[in-house]
Design a protein around this nucleic acid. Structure first.
Lengths: 220, 220
DNA sequence: CGGTAATTTGACCGAAGTCAACAAAAGTGG
DNA sequence: CCACTTTTGTTGACTTCGGTCAAATTACCG
């Protein structure tokens, strides 16, 4: 259902795959504090990077969709210990690359270099935007912003058709990603639905009016 | 007053400085969207990276203290456009390095390599922690966490003595960094002061009980 | 079909925001 | 060095967005 992407996957994945690993849904497959000598791309499925506070509260930093590189940072700083864990949201298939080799592959061509620079730039940009969202936007703004971001990322990989895409994220995850509670996420989603901006059932999200949603994302 | 650091500064700064630039206080000297072919170290003074929302709300992502590298990301991804601006909080002196050269210098010795890996690791860790703070901690927790973080960073550079350090950050900046309002930052600082955890006047901060502050930072 | 997990709804609460006035510092020019 | 202005910080009264608690519904799954 959350199958492999084709066009959007960095070529490095297809030409120099090293090792494939699969995990079931809801499995933490990278743990905070570990140092990685591998870099992973998410071949199929969704995952998220997160941390857990001492009393169990959780903060989700980022949702990973098919085609994403999972621990980007260790690509350029192999051996650093990660400040987050990564957990699957659906069954996932990962491709593992030796950091050294992945690096030399990326550096091979100007095309690959630019492509990975763009990837990095988007990632950092999304991460910073998330901080601004949580720090300075209302619940409406945050949720809109996240939906717009994810729709865009999926679209580039042909995983969103007319604003409709598979969305295996529970309201609890949205809450943990956006600094809200599930109850309030629910009420806010309801508001977006009643305003005919989005439609969804449990597994499928449709953005009905991207332009207005984007407007709300920016203004609220 | 916010003078140069000695021991904590990456050696690369002292041995291969390229160009020195100075800016007055309150000057935005790196702008969002620009691509940098230089990497900067903050030789003296404080600065912060931030973004501004359409309606003027501001989110501060990170405070930079003397000895910090300013746009870390462009060290490994030269040419990416930055998702943030950087503004001085005091008069600052920067050392600019050509990215290419800085990189080859860093790669020269195992020592330098490890050192810059640790720097990166700390930076990413602080950035992720900030997200978790804003998303999941109370005002008390957020402010405590930030003070503990900054005291630690300054101490490693000998800029904090017995928990006392120069602190040219206005309450407005704390608010914009932590997703709060100045009024509430003020009340919360007052609470910390009344609990004898910190003391401060406008330019100087003293942490009176680091252990308990750290406890609050983790628990609230 | 029955049990568990996820969503939805209602009633109530409180942490943090808003608005506004004032006080204390810090510049600034004469 | 002092009046004057501007920035910051402080405090009070009141509001609100989002949280909490708890009880339905509704979806999923074996």
């Amino acid at each position: 259902m959350y199958g492999p992407t084709v066009a959007g996957t960095p070529d490095v994945v297809n030409t120099h795959r090293r090792e494939v690993r699969s995990f079931p849904s809801q499995r933490t497959f990278l743990r905070e504090g570990e140092a990685q000598s591998y870099v992973f791309t998410l071949y199929s499925g969704w995952a998220f990077r997160y941390t857990t506070l001492r009393d169990g509260r959780r903060q989700i930093f980022f949702f990973h969709v098919p085609g994403d590189i999972i621990a980007l940072e260790s690509l350029t700083f192999p051996g650093i210990s990660l400040p987050f864990s990564v957990k699957s949201l659906t069954p996932v298939t990962l491709c593992a690359f030796d950091v050294k080799e992945a690096n030399s592959l990326v550096r091979t061509t100007k095309f690959q270099q630019d492509r990975s620079a763009v990837t990095m730039q988007r990632f950092f940009s999304d991460l910073h935007r998330r901080i601004a969202d949580i720090g300075r936007r209302s619940a409406m703004g945050r949720i809109s912003q996240l939906l717009v971001e994810i729709e865009g990322r999926l679209r580039r990989r042909q995983l969103s058709k007319n604003g409709t895409f598979a969305f295996p994220v529970r309201q609890e995850h949205l809450a943990d990603a956006l600094g809200l509670t599930t109850v309030y996420v629910n009420r806010t989603l309801d508001k977006l639905r009643k305003q005919k901006l989005i439609a969804f059932d449990r597994h499928r999200m449709t953005i009905l009016d991207l332009e207005r949603l984007h407007e709300i994302a920016e203004e609220e």
